[in-house]
Amino acid sequence: MQLSGEITLAGSRAASSYGAQVAADLAGELAAAGRTVIAGGGFGIEAAAVRGALAAHTPTVAVLGCGIDRAYPAAHENLLARIAETGLLVSAVAPGTTPGRHRALARHRLLAALGDATVVVEAAARSGALHVAAAADGLGLPVLAVPGPTSSVLSVGPHRLIRHGATLVTSAADVLEALAPAVETTAIAGA
């Protein structure tokens, strides 16, 4: 599988129906546009993003917080198997390694590093998705965020990112427009 124009989608495990729909739509449209969608294998926004990319019949990448030989969360065993059929399961830890909270930061850094940019769909004030965004920013990669309802605690993270310079996006077209120069520069640098 050749990766080109990879986009990491991150967000809350306790996603709202709005956030899950936005993540699935973004992922599906980005995948249909030839971009590789990268997300974790967890609940919420990650699962919605992966399902959106799979629905577009394109490979996707799932970054796990455990060894690639483990289905975590266990409820996603079938979803992870579908990803492995056409895409990639990757991890910062060795096979056989069990999941744990202390492995989250390595997973977040890997999620950020694999994408040409990170899009945060929903995130509460202390969400791991904000760690992914911070890691992307630390690597000099673009951070984009989807606004949400002002009354939702899951909008706090994206709104904070936007206030601090993240690009506001509401569609896959916005993401592609924001990244056009970055993807072209990456392609030229790799030539």
Rank of each mutant, 00 (worst) to 15 (best):
L88A: 15
L110N: 14
H108T: 01
A81W: 00
H108G: 00
S171D: 05
R160C: 04
T150I: 07
T97E: 03
H102A: 05
L161Q: 09
V119C: 13
G96W: 07
A117L: 10
V143S: 12
A112S: 12
A123F: 05
E85G: 10
P158C: 01
T170Q: 04
P149K: 11
L139H: 15
G115I: 15
A84C: 06
E122L: 01
R103K: 07
A104G: 00
S151M: 05
A124D: 06
A124F: 00
V120L: 06
A124C: 04
G100T: 02
V132T: 15
A135S: 14
G87E: 08
L105K: 01
L130E: 03
L168S: 09
A104V: 09
R101M: 08
A104M: 14
G115A: 13
L88N: 04
V146K: 02
A145E: 09
A145K: 04
A134F: 03
G115N: 11
L110C: 13
P149N: 12
H164D: 11
A135V: 06
A113M: 12
S91I: 05
A84S: 15
V153I: 05
R126P: 04
L144A: 08
T86L: 09
L111M: 12
G138T: 15
A94I: 00
A92Q: 12
L144E: 08
G148S: 05
L161D: 07
A145N: 07
G138C: 15
A84Y: 12
P99R: 01
G96C: 05
G87A: 12
A94C: 00
S151E: 05
L88Y: 13
A113P: 14
A166V: 06
T98P: 00
S127W: 00
L154G: 02
V132N: 03
H108C: 01
P158Q: 02
A106S: 03
L89G: 12
G87V: 10
S155Y: 09
S155C: 03
R101L: 10
T97D: 02
S151L: 09
T150W: 11
A92I: 01
A145G: 11
H164N: 11
H131W: 12
L168H: 06
V169Q: 06
H131Y: 09
S91P: 09
H131K: 14
T97Q: 03
S152F: 01
L110T: 14
L154H: 10
P142T: 07
V119P: 13
L144I: 09
A134L: 10
A123I: 04
S91R: 01
V119T: 12
V93A: 01
T86F: 08
A123N: 10
D137L: 15
T150L: 11
